[in-house]
Amino acid sequence: MRENRRIKVGVLVGVSALAFSVLTGASALADGPADGLQEVEMPAGVRIVEGLAPGAGVDMPSLEDEADAPVMSMAAAKAAPAANTCLGTTAAYGAKGCFQHNGDIVWAGDTQKDGMSAAVGVYTDYGRAPEVCINRLGVNTWATCDKDYRETGNVRLRVLRYDGDTGKFYQPESWSGWIPVDGKY
């Protein structure tokens, strides 16, 4: 009985956090960065991985702004996500990212024609070195980086811009919450 109550409270907290992130993250998706792009320091040893174009017929996430989308219902939060569901969708100026738990695929979407690339940094809660998936395919495209994370771990996404000419990263940036690698919240 007590375990069931904890699960219900946990789901309620998760849905509340999702709703809050949707409401507060919408301002980061403005037409342009308010104060211009600012350089960001990445942790030492970050590995940069060039994303690949998704294969033909692959069900891709939307690049559209989801700020107006309805918040997920409590019943939907309890259900296990579909195999191709993109979790932890996070966006900032010019970039969007998410994590597909089936196959451990990181998606990096470029949403701004500004000569820069979308970048999605991936951090784990178990000490694996961070990596960044770069989308150099151009505006309105998705790139994928196929990884292999520990199924009992969690990942966190950091979405920002990348200038391939200089090798530098830029904000505005946005962070996801912790996403379970197995897709089970």
Rank of each mutant, 00 (worst) to 15 (best):
Y185P: 00
G115D: 13
G97K: 13
P43K: 03
I179V: 01
M72A: 05
L87W: 09
G36E: 11
A79N: 06
T111D: 14
D65G: 01
T166L: 05
E41W: 07
P70T: 04
G14A: 12
V9W: 13
A75D: 10
M116L: 15
P61T: 08
A75R: 11
D114F: 15
G109W: 15
G57I: 02
G97R: 11
A69E: 14
I48S: 09
A17F: 09
C86V: 09
A56S: 10
D114I: 13
G103C: 01
A34Q: 14
P33W: 09
D31R: 03
C145L: 02
E41V: 04
T144F: 02
D148R: 04
A92D: 13
P70D: 15
R6S: 02
G55H: 11
V181S: 01
W107G: 01
E66V: 02
G55E: 15
G88L: 13
K113C: 06
G97M: 15
E151G: 03
L12M: 08
A143Y: 07
L137H: 04
I179Q: 01
V11A: 06
R156A: 00
N102C: 03
G177M: 07
G51S: 05
F169T: 08
A34Y: 13
V40M: 11
G103S: 03
Q38M: 07
K184I: 11
A30C: 03
N4F: 15
V15A: 06
M72Q: 13
V11H: 11
A82M: 10
L52R: 12
V40L: 08
V132R: 11
K96Y: 14
V13T: 10
L37S: 00
G183I: 05
S16M: 07
A119T: 12
A19G: 07
R156Q: 05
A80G: 09
D65T: 05
L29T: 04
C98T: 08
V120C: 05
A143W: 12
R47Y: 10
Y126S: 06
E3G: 00
C133G: 02
M116I: 11
Y123N: 01
K96G: 02
